[in-house]
Amino acid sequence: MRAIGFVFLGAFVALSSSCIDPVHSDDVDALGPEAPGVPEGLTHRAGQPCLTCHGGLGPGSPRFSVAGTVYLKRTDTAALQGATVVITDADGDSRSVETNEVGNFRIERDTWNPIFPLRISLSYQGEDATMKTLVNGNGGCNFCHRGDGDSTHSPRVYLRTK
């Protein structure tokens, strides 16, 4: 009887560990804890790659198809509230979404699952900016756009260069 118990336990452990994606787990861990005083929700983790947690592998829910954070300028961290982000997919279907007080925006996958590649443009009080390249595979803007940028990341999503 005890032997059967061991077999079941072993099988459970094996099945559990086979479901863990270590790369994804590392990506989630790399995000670190929530910022003090900012609750989970629409304003949390501004500037971080939303789809790391909300891309379908967890732990966040709901699942997003496109999400990111918009800033006024390339050179500083002031969020741009009230900007309109227009996303157009490969079939020409498009959606508009407005940024909130920390610059975050999101589209839930249940409401729209666009066909990649995507084109993205930004407008705010008569000013426009259009992304020069296509979004080919990851709808999490901050996956490619991170902070001030470096050799492997573009700078934050911004309206003005300066």
Binding site: K132, T133, C144, G149, D150, S151, T152, H153, S154, P155
Partner: peptide, 13 residues
């Protein structure tokens, strides 16, 4: 340009 850069001082754009 448009992707990863070899030189750490450079940016994708």
């Amino acid at each position: 340009v448009g992707g990863r850069r070899l030189d750490d001082k450079y940016y994708p754009d």
